[in-house]
Computed example of a mutant assay.
Amino acid sequence: MTIQQPSEALMSRSYPPEFRRKVLDLVTSGRKVAEVAQLLGISDKTIYVWRRQHRLRRAEAALSDAGPALAADECTPRDIADTTRVKATRAAALRSRGKARRPRK
Rank of each mutant, 00 (worst) to 15 (best):
T2P: 13
Q4Y: 08
Q4L: 11
Q4C: 10
Q5G: 06
Q5D: 01
Q5N: 08
P6T: 06
S7T: 14
E8Q: 09
A9E: 08
A9T: 13
A9H: 12
L10A: 15
M11N: 09
S12G: 12
S12I: 12
S12D: 02
R13M: 11
S14T: 15
S14R: 15
S14E: 07
Y15D: 00
P16N: 07
P16T: 12
P17Y: 09
P17G: 03
E18R: 15
F19C: 04
R20K: 15
R20W: 04
R20F: 10
R21E: 00
R21G: 04
K22W: 13
L24T: 11
L24R: 08
L24A: 03
D25R: 11
D25E: 06
D25V: 06
L26V: 06
V27I: 07
T28A: 15
T28K: 14
S29Q: 06
G30V: 01
G30M: 01
G30I: 00
G30W: 01
R31T: 14
R31D: 11
R31H: 11
V33S: 00
A34H: 15
E35I: 10
E35L: 09
V36C: 04
A37N: 04
Q38S: 08
L39Q: 15
L40K: 05
G41E: 06
S43W: 06
D44I: 01
D44L: 00
D44A: 05
T46W: 13
T46F: 12
Y48T: 08
Y48E: 01
W50C: 01
W50K: 02
R51C: 02
R51T: 02
R51N: 07
R52E: 02
R52N: 08
H54A: 10
H54S: 08
R55M: 04
R55G: 11
L56H: 02
L56D: 00
R57T: 13
R57W: 10
A59D: 04
A61L: 11
S64T: 12
S64P: 00
A66E: 03
A66D: 02
G67Y: 10
P68D: 01
P68R: 07
P68F: 09
A69L: 14
L70D: 00
A71P: 07
A71T: 13
A71K: 12
A72W: 08
E74S: 10
C75L: 05
P77W: 08
P77L: 05
P77H: 09
R78Y: 14
D79Y: 03
D79M: 01
A81H: 12
A81K: 05
A81M: 07
D82S: 10
T83N: 05
R85P: 01
V86K: 09
K87T: 03
K87V: 01
T89D: 07
T89R: 10
R90Y: 02
R90M: 01
A92G: 02
A92Q: 01
A93T: 04
R95E: 05
S96W: 05
S96I: 02
S96D: 07
R97Q: 09
R97F: 05
G98N: 00
K99L: 11
K99S: 12
K99N: 12
A100Y: 00
A100R: 03
A100Q: 04
R101K: 13
R102E: 06
P103Y: 01
K105T: 10
K105Q: 08
